[in-house]
């Protein structure tokens, strides 16, 4: 698989996080995230997340740490208010490298 910067954008994998991103769905999301390591780049879309819990955010933290170790830097396509709030409460916003909220 080519790894030139020209192809990177095309090969970027977008992972849409589920609306109900909690204990019941973390295993499924983990499987998707593992595949993302094979792609040139990963993009996380959390815009549609309506419910989230500690297990979900912990999974994302572990994912980011792993990606960083592999020299990748997954980008955020979107972050829902629910996710941002939960990350704030758990003190995980920094570890998740959440983008600053868009001005309304």
């Amino acid at each position: 698989m080519g790894k030139t910067t020209g192809e990177a954008k095309a090969a970027a994998r977008v992972i849409a996080l589920p609306a109900d991103f909690r204990l019941g769905s973390v295993a499924q999301v983990k499987a998707e995230l593992i595949e993302a390591f094979d792609a040139a780049a990963a993009q996380l879309d959390g815009a549609g997340v309506e419910r989230v819990d500690t297990a979900a955010l912990q999974l994302l933290v572990a994912f980011r740490r792993e990606a960083t170790a592999r020299g990748q830097s997954p980008a955020w396509l979107g972050v829902s208010e629910v996710m941002r709030d939960a990350a704030g409460v758990l003190g995980l916003a920094q570890a998740l490298e959440l983008p600053a909220p868009m001005p309304a």
């Binding site: 204990l23 973390v26 295993a27 999301v29 983990k30 995230l33 593992i34 500690t54 297990a55 912990q58 999974l59 572990a62 994912f63 740490r65 792993e66």
Partner: peptide, 9 residues
């Protein structure tokens, strides 16, 4: 990441 059991804390 690979070793993480995602339902545990």
């Amino acid at each position: 990441f690979a070793a993480l059991e995602p339902t545990e804390c």
